[in-house]
């Protein structure tokens, strides 16, 4: 039952994330990215089986984990993914800041290269 609720939540996050990803202002794009990252983390979390109140700690005196326990590998995957998305987000934020400084507007439409402009503007280093 909880899986259904989390699945619906993931669906909502994916929907809003992709919708915001297609938005015109760059800040909304950034928020969409955050939501998308959260949605994927939730997918990984749900797929490693939701277990209530059973941390993966070996009890005193035992040698191996006693089932049922929450899956530690899934949690490690999510941790790695969170750290990576944090780095990516920091970079994207700086990129958007720099783009705003360069073109003076938050609009993605102002970034489109008119036809043939790649031939007239200054070329990159040979």
């Amino acid at each position: 039952m909880t899986e259904l609720a989390v699945a619906i939540l993931t669906g909502i996050l994916f929907t809003t994330g992709v919708y915001l990803l297609l938005e015109r202002t760059m800040i909304k794009f950034l928020i969409g990215l955050v939501l998308l990252g959260n949605a994927t983390n939730l997918v990984v979390f749900t797929c490693s089986r939701l277990v209530r109140g059973a941390p993966p700690i070996i009890p005193k005196g035992e040698k191996i984990l006693q089932p049922p326990f929450a899956d530690p590998l899934g949690q490690a995957l999510i941790l790695t993914a969170i750290v990576i998305s944090f780095g990516v987000l920091a970079f994207t934020m700086m990129l958007i800041r720099r783009t705003y400084d360069a073109i003076g507007s938050d609009d993605v439409e102002d970034l489109i290269e008119p036809l043939g402009q790649d031939l007239t503007e200054k070329e990159s280093a040979p």
């Binding site: 990215l33 994927t40 997918v43 797929c47 490693s48």
Partner: peptide, 18 residues
């Protein structure tokens, strides 16, 4: 490319769960 990483991660979750 960011979207592709998100998809990759989703696929990873699915394949790990399966």
């Amino acid at each position: 490319n960011l979207f592709s990483s998100m998809l990759f991660l989703t696929g990873l979750g699915l394949i790990y769960g399966a």
